[in-house]
């Protein structure tokens, strides 16, 4: 075959370029450890995500500075949303879909994966600085695809916790009876936390210091004398760090039996969601986290 000298040179240069490209990609994989989303995870049933991870989408701590985030994507939202993780952490995301193909993509970073029903995408990400990242679905998933978004907040170490607060109190009591306000605090971190449970009711503030071991739940009960509060509606708030839960207790001279029972039932049911504005009724477990407090500067957009 007759090949011109220049053409031979060009051929050689082209091959060098190609081999060079493959070498840089290989270096990225082997040297820098940028692994691809692969087939590490077993398949799941998209219509019944009842395994331990996806039945309760959340962030969990699995080691010192190591976290796992179980995320589901569905028309047209992510769960949990927002996702909150601490700075200097290594977070492994497990993402799956309940319905069609979506994506889970942190805007402006290389955290990006397809989310395919039946498959679980696994991706380990290092977050260094406190920051906030938008999350988009970048695969067309239906008529409201453009409204599918979420947030990832990377918060300073000392602002991060995996505390769950749930406070309960009767909705109505008779004057003279005691009001028992029970605060259930779960510490889902591995390390123990020392914190203070505070109850504000009327003009009174009572608090108690607690130490909760990793993975443990603590119950603190405050007893308030209703006679001191007097007749009427009294708002109460339980605060643990920046988690709050609040509701109203009505002190009445005489309880009207019918109403009282119904109301009390309803109220103590609803009461778990009381402090939660950011959530749109999804059953995410990060609900109590008051994300507004933890926002840092919005300089997102740097590659991760």
């Amino acid at each position: 075959m007759n090949i011109h000298t220049y053409e031979k040179l060009w051929l050689v240069a082209a091959m060098v370029l190609i081999v060079g490209f493959i070498a840089t990609i290989t270096y990225g994989s082997v040297g820098l450890g940028i692994t691809m989303v692969g087939d590490q995870q077993d398949t799941v049933e998209p219509t019944e995500l009842d395994d331990e991870r996806f039945s309760d989408p959340r962030v969990a701590q699995v080691g010192e500075n190591e976290y796992e985030a179980y995320v589901t994507a569905q028309m047209f939202s992510f769960q949990p949303d927002p996702i909150e993780v601490p700075e200097d952490s290594e977070v492994t995301f497990y993402v799956t879909s309940r319905d069609v193909i979506h994506s889970f993509s942190l805007v402006g970073t290389n955290v990006n994966t397809m989310v395919i029903p039946g498959e679980v995408a696994e991706m380990t990400v290092e977050f260094d600085e406190p920051d906030e990242y938008g999350v988009v679905c970048n695969e067309y998933c239906g008529p409201n695809h453009h409204n599918m978004e979420g947030m990832v907040y990377v918060v300073p170490e000392d602002e991060f916790d995996l505390t769950e607060l749930d406070a309960e109190a009767p909705g109505e009591v008779e004057t003279g009876d005691d009001i028992d306000v029970t605060a259930t605090v779960e510490n889902r971190l591995l390390d123990p936390i020392e914190t203070t449970v505070t109850l504000e009711i009327g003009n009174e503030t009572v608090s108690e210091d607690v130490t909760i071991d990793g993975g443990e739940t603590d119950e603190t009960t405050f007893t308030v004398d209703s006679a001191q509060l007097g007749e009427g509606d009294h708002e109460w708030t339980v605060t643990v760090d920046d988690h709050t839960d609040s509701w109203t207790v009505t002190v009445a001279d005489e309880l009207e039996d019918d109403d009282a029972d119904d109301d009390a039932d309803e109220e103590s049911n609803e009461n778990t969601d009381a402090g939660d504005d950011a959530d749109d009724g999804e059953n995410g477990t990060e609900d109590e986290t008051d994300t507004d407090e933890t926002e840092s500067d919005a300089s997102g957009g740097d590659g991760e």
């Binding site: 994506s103 970073t109 938008g134 970048n138 453009h146 919005a298 997102g300």
Partner: peptide, 16 residues
């Protein structure tokens, strides 16, 4: 910048 393809409104509420 991370603007996705295939979307009618690449303008989001939570971030820019």
């Amino acid at each position: 910048l991370g603007i996705p393809r295939r979307t009618a409104e690449p303008q989001y509420d939570g971030f820019e």
